[in-house]
Amino acid sequence: MPTAPRVRTGRPQLEELRRQIQAIETPISSPVLTGQDALVLGPGLHEVCPASYLDTPAALAFQIGMLGHGLAEQDRLRPVIWVRSAGHRAHDFGRPYPLALARWGLEPERVLLVEARDAGDVLWAMEEGLNAGALVIGEIGVSARYDLTASRRLHRSAQAAKARALVLRGHQQIQPSAALTRWRLSALPSPDRPWRGATGLPGLGAPRFCAVLERVRGGPPKSFEIEWKNAAFHVLEPAPMARRAAQSASQFNRLAV
């Protein structure tokens, strides 16, 4: 008689153990997915560095575009915390403009702009946001406070919340961190529009960027030329990879314009 209940309770325990083991053993899925020829980032901490000072707006555009793309339906309503440090005026290209955010796939009413006093507050606000399940953009810039320990904390929080944290670093940053990926962003000339204005200059096409994946956990560095179109980043010239052969020629032509 005493064995019967043990068997019955043992079953769920076994299930629970299996689930725990599975959680530990979850294979590290690639932090960067190129499904449907669009770039998608996995949950965790990602770093973006502009290739030069003047590429900072391009790096921010990349961050905003990558932030919400490829999320599950219920995660699209998560608030977005945009943390900036109030200090660096000289490095500043201005504040994000609410009316432009929608074009980059971010509804402005979801955004909470935090202008922190110093780097310590920036990191605190980012972690607090991640713990609350928000998506986070952090303009860290050049800061000694953002080190291996700080980045590991952010990464843990982001993974626990299955959220993405995107950190903008200075263009000369080479210090190590615990981020899943590090991107180096620069702008690329966009394709000319077929028409020309009265002044002889062609119109602006879809924005293009050169995104170099400098560092990725569990993978080799890669380089992408990407284009923002239809609310996603599409890879223009896929780097040599397995999927390339499977891609139909017509699709490729359409993407390359």
């Binding site: 609410p98 909470l112 702009l113 935090v114 507050d121 605190w124």
Partner: peptide
């Protein structure tokens, strides 16, 4: 939580 720690003027929303 953010505005209690950082100050009310530092946490903003789109308007």
């Amino acid at each position: 939580r953010l505005s209690v720690r950082l100050g009310e003027t530092r946490v903003k929303r789109a308007a």
